[in-house]
């Protein structure tokens, strides 16, 4: 489903601020893989998702999604393959537009937009049902501005937007990190439900080691722009946090350092 080969990216090359964010990253995802991603500060996790999304072009390497080489495809074109949810709840929606309008835009991801109605009547019913599955009481607020929702509600709506038009690949960039623990758990539960029910191929960055072990069928750890630990199946299910830290230290030769992980025990 996803094939990343020898991906490299250096920010501010040739200056004192030069930072190699991706250093020959290789990663292959099978159809239906639900992969959790953890790593220290500046390991290249978000950079990887941005590269897949096409926010900028990599310096070297290729990205294939479902057999299509998207390395040089502009961001809005490859959006047809991707569903994305970001860390910042403000980032995933248009705040001054209605919930229904946001969903209407998302439902047409990957299609050519024309001068016909942006939301059909039948769609409103469909959105209502989908919002009801979130169990956040949003099903009767189709015409509310998204800006009026709480952070958790927004992330849930963004999640719906990302998956409304089934993506080949779902990219979750610490999408619960900005929420309080209770809300984060709820959003994560919704995420898991949507991903498993639709059998979506998913990359989920998280700073919560417990979540990284509990969710998904595969776990990767990144360090200095590369994947250094890759466990899946039974082996992953049996992992404990101390084992995970040990794996990391063995593979990287350094101690695991991520402020958020340290603070989120």
């Amino acid at each position: 489903m996803l094939k990343i080969t020898n991906l490299q990216k250096t920010f501010n090359p040739g200056t004192v601020n030069a930072k190699t964010a991706l250093a020959g990253l290789d990663l292959t995802l099978k159809n239906g893989d639900f992969v959790t991603v953890i790593g220290g500060n500046g390991a290249g996790k978000s950079t990887m998702l941005n590269a897949i999304s096409g926010v900028w072009k990599p310096d070297y390497g290729t990205i294939e999604i479902d057999g299509v080489d998207v390395t040089n495809m502009p961001e809005h074109k490859r959006a047809k393959f991707l569903g994305r949810v970001f860390q910042d709840p403000m980032m995933g929606t248009a705040p001054d537009m209605e919930i229904a309008e946001n969903l209407g835009i998302a439902a047409r991801r990957g299609t050519k937009r024309k001068l016909r109605w942006g939301i059909k009547k039948t769609e409103r019913e469909e959105y209502k049902k989908l919002l009801a599955t979130l169990e956040l009481g949003l099903e009767n607020r189709l015409s509310s501005k998204v800006g009026l929702l709480s952070g958790g509600q927004r992330q849930a709506v963004t999640l719906l937007m990302a998956t409304l038009n089934r993506p080949k690949l779902l990219l979750l960039d610490e999408h619960t990190a900005a929420l309080d623990p209770k809300t984060a758990a709820k959003v994560l539960e919704i995420t898991n439900k949507i991903v498993t029910e639709n059998n979506l191929t998913t990359l989920m960055i998280t700073h919560n080691m417990h979540d990284a072990i509990e969710y998904g069928n595969r776990l990767i750890m990144m360090h200095e722009g590369k994947v250094i630990v890759d466990v899946s199946g039974e082996e992953k299910k049996k992992l404990t946090i101390p084992q995970l830290l040990e794996l990391f230290e063995k593979a990287s030769g350094s101690e695991f350092a991520n402020d958020k992980v340290m603070l989120s025990k």
Partner: peptide
């Protein structure tokens, strides 16, 4: 319309607009 809605979203949040194609 479909085009009109995306023009609104472009002004409000270009980031998510791109992510939605």
């Amino acid at each position: 319309t479909e085009v009109g809605l995306t023009i609104k979203s472009t002004g409000e949040n270009p980031h998510i607009s791109r992510a939605q194609g």
